[in-house]
């Protein structure tokens, strides 16, 4: 996978831990993930599964006291004309250094769930968007303002000139998320990470924002890492999907494969838990048995075994399943498909 010409971000056996007073939380473990240029990758999982921390690692904005224990995050940097190529390991950078700052916001940008709290309440929207432009582009304030205005217009915010001088509280939720997208895209990043960008919005607004993102993705040719717990949203937008559970990717593959041919019992259950219109009435919505274990009581062996219906006794509860290829670009971490373990 590593020498794929189209690879943009390549994560190899990433492990992120949070040393706390109560014990060490292994938030992300053994994660391998490749995002290609222009690809929309969906990362799905319940809260606490490590999907957010993975994204934060790519930005190196993992909150204290979290840190990358080991692993690589390779970024395949390319100059705008495509002539110069280099590979940088983000995991090795100082999260407070200048090297990472020239990459943050420029090569990779991120948008978040809460569009209101994403903006400082005391600064105008224009000020906050222009800041991103001034940091990474060689322009003066006037030009930056012009770019900001164009971006606002591009995300279809009416009356952009006036909007620039307004404060976040004067924007509606949907408008704020548009402004957030505008801010993230001002420097035309190669990768946009979107963490539940539509969850806090009304359903109609959700659809508009998704459409907008898709449109901009095609226009700018950027990759999107779409983080959500909502498989329905993923189905609309993602080409490939990674399913995470308790810090590990348990299944990864093209969207079609994941939705029509799920292999891991967890993925299987997740899909069953999606409500569908047109199902025979009387059929119950299936919930996944049990609850996600607390951060300090991670089960040994396969982390999913206590909730798994297809558990193999003395195997799943004792050993870590390894990664098994089950199809084209489709891999799963489960003993049902191979006896490989991840222990050496």
């Amino acid at each position: 996978m590593a020498n794929d010409e189209r690879a943009l971000i390549e994560i190899n056996s990433l492990k992120v831990i949070f040393p706390l007073d109560e014990g060490t939380v292994r938030a992300v473990e053994d994660v391998d993930l490749v995002i290609k240029r222009g690809q929309v990758m969906g990362v799905v999982g319940e809260s606490g599964c490590g999907k957010t921390v993975t994204a934060q690692s790519i930005m190196r904005i993992v909150p204290d006291p979290g840190r990358i224990e080991h692993g690589e995050i390779l970024f395949h940097r390319r100059s705008p004309d495509g002539t110069k190529k280099e590979i940088i390991d983000i995991a090795k950078m100082d999260p407070r250094g200048s090297e990472i700052r020239s990459y943050r916001g420029k090569e990779v940008a991120m948008i978040f769930q809460e569009p209101l709290s994403s903006f400082s309440p005391l600064h105008t929207i224009g000020n906050q968007i222009m800041e991103a432009i001034l940091l990474h582009q060689d322009v003066n304030k006037k030009q930056a303002r012009e770019i900001a205005k164009e971006m606002l217009a591009r995300v279809r915010i009416p009356n952009p000139t006036r909007r620039l001088d307004q404060y976040p509280h004067e924007f509606s939720g949907g408008m704020r998320q548009r402004a957030m997208i505008a801010m993230a895209l001002t420097c035309k990043p190669a990768l946009l990470m979107a963490e539940e960008p539509t969850t806090a919005l009304d359903v109609t607004i959700q659809a508009q924002i998704l459409d907008l993102m898709k449109e901009l993705q095609e226009e700018f040719g950027m990759a999107i890492m779409f983080i959500t717990h909502n498989l329905g949203v993923i189905a609309q937008i993602a080409e490939a999907v990674a399913i995470m559970y308790l810090g590990k990717i348990v299944e990864i593959g093209p969207s079609r494969e994941i939705f029509h041919n799920p292999q891991h019992p967890y993925t299987f259950n997740l899909l069953k838990a999606i409500p569908r219109i047109g199902k025979t009435t009387g059929q119950h919505l299936v919930a996944i048995e049990g609850a996600v274990p607390g951060p300090f009581e991670r089960p040994s062996g396969c982390t999913f075994y206590p909730r798994c219906e297809r558990i193999i006794p003395n195997r799943c509860d004792m050993h870590n399943p390894g990664v098994t290829r089950v199809g084209e670009g489709h891999a799963v971490r489960c003993f049902l498909y191979s006896e490989d373990t991840d222990e050496d």
Binding site: I61, P63, S98, R101, G105, S117, S120
Partner: peptide
């Protein structure tokens, strides 16, 4: 310090 808007600003590449 731990609010989202600070993270957003950090993600823009602003020095600490």
């Amino acid at each position: 310090k731990n609010k989202l808007y600070v993270t957003v600003a950090r993600a823009k590449g602003l020095p600490e």
